[in-house]
Nucleic acid binder design. Structure first.
Length: 490
RNA sequence: GGCCCCUUGGAGAAGUGGUUUAACUCACCAGCCUUUCACGCUGGCAUUCAGGGGUUCGAAUCCCCUAGGGGUCACCA
């Protein structure tokens, strides 16, 4: 039975790199019919907050990555918050005491800092000196009596080799002499990460630890604890990190890379998840657009890349656009509403919104861009841009515009935007033919003046989309205004 | 500085000793289509896999060295 977990420390929002790690865990679990667990590593009392725990849970739900055990949903191996598991750590600590694997350390932060500096100055590896390792029981008792609050260190065995068969990286070897005795219980009695994860992973029966590669270096410490405890060591898989466009580790400087930020900007969760999956993993058939279900079916750790990936927003944009194109219109309308509201744009109607979305969706990288694409549909008049002016000043322009308006007025009321689109398309076709016959102008000479009058620009949507979107009234006003402007100028 | 990891085009990558003159996708460039901009279509974009040595009839694929990038050496996780 496969059991994996995601164990963030709730000190900030879930960022895009963390989301990828969760995704790989989740896909691995689902692919094996296993269990995915969400727990909270909140032993950093200073920075942890339930607010971020909630934020992370919300982000996971938004991405569609549900968990079977853990925060909010509970389960048989709880509690799932480290600060609520202190009794459990005590039990395991007792076992380490019994085996003689730990000792009290009374060194002050200042002493430690001094040691570190001196070691560095001597060009040595700054590992803990082991000063307190050989304190006699009497000395320990004396310090305890004096009221000193000790930390507890793990005795790392001398000169042993720790070999890890990493699921992604292959065999990795460490020498125990390179790692100093490390603290597993802080002087405030709270366990340290390296100890708490091990106990949690043991008690929650975790079989595979899939996490960011920055933890690779912690693995030998944890393996030594497993061994001291006589527990079975899980399998490890260390996923590479995600870098920003400049090739650095992603930072806040590049903007808000949190999952919620992408949600807020109008990225679809299925696009984000799809993009993230492909950042470091590729399916055997090299398909790109795929649903979570498809990914679950094809996922395997041995197709996960070892090298760090660079987060390419251009490709995310392309992918999001693909999903926007394929999105159900009702859903897209729901998603669009908040962005319109924010921009102060009120859609004419739900039907109108859906029609507009269908027309402009091809151009959208994300919904946040929507207002910029449709705000031009709202005013009654437009400013004529320099590039569009010549089309209105053409000799035949007034005649074309007048005739267009006349015919538009004769159009029977349409039952839908789609029907109106067809009517206008037919109207334009006939207008073009008639103008060619009667005045010898066609093509650009008839379409461009209309476009210029309606939009003030020389580019944009097809006219037969534009007219239904603007509506007859607004079309009339814009054309009449343009006509006036041209005649005044002439 | 020690230790550990990584290195195929601007980005994601396929490729695990021989039809690879290195697939595919994004980006970029050009042409076509089109009333315009887009969309779409077509084509271009690594004689080479960080560099250098080996092993081999044959290497992006195996070995060694060098360089570059990253991680880590906390009473943070």
């Amino acid at each position: 039975m496969v059991r994996v977990r995601f164990a963030p420390s709730p000190t900030g929002p879930l960022h895009i790199g963390g989301a990828r790690t969760v995704l790989f865990n989740w896909l691995f679990a689902r692919n094996h019919g296993g269990t995915f667990i969400l727990r909270s590593e909140d032993t950093d009392l200073e920075r942890s907050s339930v607010r971020w725990e909630k934020d992370i849970a919300d982000s996971l739900r938004w991405l569609g990555l549900t968990w079977d055990e853990g925060l909010e949903v509970g389960g048989p191996h709880g509690p799932y918050r480290q600060t609520e598991r202190l009794e459990i750590y005590k039990e395991y600590l007792a076992r380490l005491w019994l085996g003689g694997h730990v000792y009290y350390c009374f060194c002050t932060p200042e002493e430690l800092e001094q040691d570190r500096r001196e070691a560095m100055a001597r060009g040595e590896n700054p590992v803990y000196s082991g000063r307190c390792r050989h304190l006699t029981p009497a000395q320990v008792e004396e310090k305890l009596q004096a009221g000193l609050k000790p930390a507890i260190r793990f005795k790392v065995p001398r000169d042993t080799e720790i070999v890890i068969q990493d699921l992604i990286r292959g065999e990795v070897r460490f020498q125990s002499r390179d790692v100093g005795d490390f603290i597993i219980i802080k002087s405030d009695g709270i366990p340290t990460y390296n100890f708490a994860v091990v106990v949690d992973d043991i008690t929650m029966r975790i079989t595979h630890v899939i996490r960011a590669s920055e933890h690779l270096i912690n693995t030998p410490r944890q393996v030594m604890i497993y061994q001291a405890l006589g527990e079975e060591v899980p399998q490890f898989g260390h996923v590479s990190v995600v870098l920003d466009v400049s090739g650095r580790k992603m930072s806040k400087r590049m903007g808000d890379m949190s999952v919620t930020a992408y949600a807020r900007r109008g990225y679809l969760p299925e696009a984000v998840v799809n993009f993230l999956a492909l950042l470091g993993w590729s399916p055997p058939d090299n398909k790109e657009l795929m649903s979570l279900e498809q990914m679950v079916k094809e996922f395997s750790l041995d197709r996960v890349s070892k090298s760090p990936g660079i987060f390419d927003e251009q490709k995310l944009n392309w992918m999001n656009n693909q999903y926007i194109r394929a999105c159900d219109l009702e859903r897209l309308a729901d998603l669009a509403l908040p962005h319109l509201e924010k921009a102060g744009l009120e859609p004419v109607s739900r039907e109108w919104l859906k029609y507009v979305l269908d027309v402009v969706r091809d151009e959208l990288n994300c919904l946040e861009e929507l207002p910029g694409h449709i705000e031009e549909f709202f005013p009654d008049t437009v400013d004529i841009e320099p590039g569009a002016l010549p089309h209105l000043e053409a000799e035949t322009a007034p005649a074309v515009l007048t005739e267009f308006l006349l015919r538009l007025d004769r159009l029977p009321a349409a039952a839908s935007y789609g029907e109106m689109q067809n009517q206008v398309q037919q109207l334009l076709k006939e207008l073009n033919q008639d103008m060619k016959r009667e005045r010898g102008v066609s093509g650009r000479a008839v379409f461009m003046p209309i476009r210029a009058a309606l939009t003030g620009r020389d580019s944009g949507q097809e006219l037969y989309y534009l007219v239904p979107i603007l509506g007859r009234e607004r079309v009339r006003r814009r054309i009449e205004a343009s006509l006036r402007q041209v005649s005044r100028g002439a």
